[in-house]
Amino acid sequence: MSTADIRVEKGHAEPEEVAAITAVLLARAAARPEPTTHHRPRPKAAWRRLEREPGFRAPHSWH
């Protein structure tokens, strides 16, 4: 990393201060856990299988 990578927008920072903040930022970036791709369980199907339906439906119900 070069000195041109970090710029002080307002005020004046000594090189030691820039080095300290750079060390903190790099340590935080290194400590961040890697994103893992966990497999999510499948959502429950909205439709029903006919063989699992009860044999009788009320006359006022419809699907």
Rank of each mutant, 00 (worst) to 15 (best):
S61C: 09
R40A: 11
A19T: 00
A58E: 13
S61F: 06
R49Y: 08
W47Q: 11
E9A: 13
P41Y: 04
S2F: 11
A27F: 12
H39T: 15
W62Q: 01
A4G: 04
I21K: 07
T3R: 09
H63E: 07
H39G: 14
S2T: 12
H39M: 15
R7E: 10
H63A: 04
A4P: 00
L26V: 09
A31S: 11
A20M: 07
R57F: 08
G55H: 07
G55C: 03
V24A: 03
E17S: 10
P15L: 04
A29E: 12
E34V: 13
G55Q: 07
A45K: 12
P41F: 02
A31D: 08
T22H: 03
T37K: 15
K10Q: 09
T37C: 12
T3H: 08
A45G: 06
P15S: 09
H39Y: 15
P15T: 05
R49L: 08
T36Y: 14
L25N: 10
R57A: 07
G55Y: 05
E9R: 14
H63S: 06
A58M: 12
L26K: 14
K44G: 04
S61R: 12
I21A: 06
E53N: 03
P35I: 04
A13L: 14
A45I: 06
A30D: 04
A27C: 10
G11H: 01
A58Q: 15
A30I: 02
A13F: 12
V18L: 09
V8C: 07
H39F: 15
H12R: 13
L25I: 08
A23H: 05
R32A: 06
A45M: 05
H39Q: 15
V18N: 05
A27E: 13
S2I: 08
L25F: 11
E16R: 02
P54W: 04
A4C: 03
V8L: 03
L50R: 14
A30L: 04
D5I: 00
R40Y: 12
R32I: 02
H39R: 15
E53C: 01
P59F: 00
R32Q: 07
I6A: 06
I6S: 06
R52C: 06
P59Y: 00
A30T: 04
E17Y: 09
T3N: 09
A29H: 11
R40K: 14
G55D: 07
A23T: 02
V18M: 09
D5K: 01
L50M: 13
T36A: 14
A46K: 15
E17D: 14
P41R: 07
H39D: 15
K10D: 04
P15G: 06
L25R: 11
P41N: 01
P54H: 05
R7Y: 11
T36L: 14
G11E: 00
E14W: 10
H63V: 01
R57V: 00
R7G: 03
H12W: 14
T3C: 01
L50Y: 13
